[in-house]
C-alpha cells in the first residue's frame, strides 16, 4: 500500500458516499445513469468473487464488501425507492456493446480460468462503465453540482491509480499491463469532464457543457 493507492481508494469510497448523499438529500436520482450504476455492480460482483478464495487483508475484504453492497443498494434506490425520478429516455446508451466487447477481450487475452476471465472482464468493463453516465450528461448538457463532485471523485480515483502503478513499478517491479491499459483508457474518458469541472465548478459556476 502506498499513499497514492490509499487516497485513490478513499476517493472511490467518497464518490459512493457523495452519490448516496445526492440521492438522499435531493430525494431524487435524476441526472444519474442507472445503466452506469448497473455496470458498476456487475464490475464489483465479477471482480470480487475472490472474496471466497483469497484473503489479502481486512482492509481489502471490507472495501470489497462495501463496494458490492453499496452498488446494489444504489440500484435498489434507483429502481424502487426513487424510481419516479429516473428518466429512462435520457439513459439510452447501448450497454450491450460494452458488455459484449469486455467479455470478448477477456476471452481472447486470459488463460481460460473462469475467475481470471471474470477478473479481466471486470477490468475492461470498469474502464468504460462511466460512458452511459457521460452520454447522459452530454444529452442534458448540465449537471447538479453534487453530481459533478461524485464524477470528479470517481474519475480521480483511477487517475491516482495510474500514479500508484508507476510507483509500484519503480519500487516493487510490479507489472500489470491489463490494469494499466484499462486504467489509462478509463482516466482518458474523464478528460473533457475534468476540464469543465476545473474551469466551471471549481470557480463556483454551474456545470454546463459549452
Amino acid at each position: 500500500m502506498n499513499i497514492f493507492r490509499l487516497v485513490a481508494d478513499l476517493m472511490h469510497l467518497a464518490s459512493i458516499f457523495i452519490l448516496l448523499l445526492k440521492i438522499q438529500k435531493t430525494r431524487s436520482c435524476s441526472g444519474i445513469s442507472f445503466k452506469s450504476q448497473l455496470l458498476y455492480s456487475i464490475v464489483f460482483v465479477t471482480r470480487y468473487l475472490d472474496l471466497f478464495t483469497a484473503f489479502i487483508s481486512l482492509y481489502n475484504t471490507s472495501m470489497k464488501i462495501f463496494f458490492i453492497a453499496t452498488s446494489i443498494y444504489i440500484l435498489y434506490l434507483m429502481k424502487f425507492k426513487f424510481r419516479a425520478t429516473y428518466d429512462p429516455n435520457l439513459d439510452t446508451f447501448r450497454v450491450e456493446f460494452l458488455l459484449g466487447g469486455s467479455l470478448l477481450l477477456a476471452l481472447i487475452f486470459s488463460d481460460f480460468v473462469l475467475m481470471e476471465i471474470l477478473w479481466q472482464f471486470s477490468i475492461y468493463l470498469e474502464s468504460v462503465a462511466i460512458l452511459p453516465q457521460l452520454f447522459m450528461l452530454s444529452r442534458t448538457g448540465e449537471a447538479e453540482t453534487i453530481t459533478t463532485h461524485y464524477l470528479f471523485a470517481l474519475g480521480g480515483y483511477r487517475a491516482l491509480y495510474l500514479i500508484n502503478w508507476l510507483w509500484r513499478f519503480v519500487t516493487e517491479s510490479h507489472v500489470d499491463k491489463i490494469s494499466w491499459i484499462a486504467g489509462a483508457v478509463q482516466t482518458a474518458l474523464y478528460s473533457d469532464f475534468f476540464y469543465i469541472y476545473y474551469t466551471k465548478v471549481l470557480h463556483g459556476k454551474k456545470f454546463e457543457l459549452p
Partner: peptide, 10 residues
C-alpha cells in the same frame, strides 16, 4: 503466481 499475488488491488 497465485490469485493473491496477482490481484491485490481493489
Amino acid at each position: 503466481t497465485s490469485a493473491k499475488e496477482k490481484h491485490d488491488e481493489l
